[in-house]
């Protein structure tokens, strides 16, 4: 059984990581694309030029991992405050853990497809 303080410590660390990697992610979609702002959010520029690069793909994967934890742990906290009971707690913990894993795996698949030059 993981201690609540450990879960919350990771929550704070992932929050800080999201701040950094999220900023990098939005920059990569806008002014860091080739050609600057005029080409911002261009599918080809962002997907092919940026996420074929392994470093950018790794950064996006890390961002996804942080988000998957932070979002679903935050949601778990909200649900535990809204309702109480051992059955509810167990159900929320398991559901949120599975949802985080599912979101992470689905996102990873998308990043891998882009990285390998495919299209969604």
């Amino acid at each position: 059984m993981v201690r609540e303080s450990t879960l919350m410590w990771i929550q704070y660390i992932t929050g800080l990581g999201i701040l950094v990697l999220g900023a990098l992610h939005f920059a990569s979609l806008t002014f860091l694309v080739q050609g600057g702002y005029p080409n911002a959010l261009s599918y080809a520029n962002v997907v092919y030029d940026r996420y074929e690069d392994p470093l950018w793909a790794a950064a996006l994967e890390a961002f996804l991992a942080l988000l998957s934890y932070h979002v679903f742990n935050g949601f778990r906290v909200l649900l535990l405050e809204l309702n109480q009971g051992s059955g509810w707690t167990k159900a929320v913990n398991v559901t949120m853990a599975l949802a985080a894993i599912a979101a992470f795996l689905y996102g990873t698949r998308t990043i891998l497809v882009f990285h390998l030059g495919g299209a969604i």
Partner: peptide, 9 residues
Amino acid sequence: VDDPHGVWR
């Protein structure tokens, strides 16, 4: 206090 309904809430 280090519980799902403890200090962290």
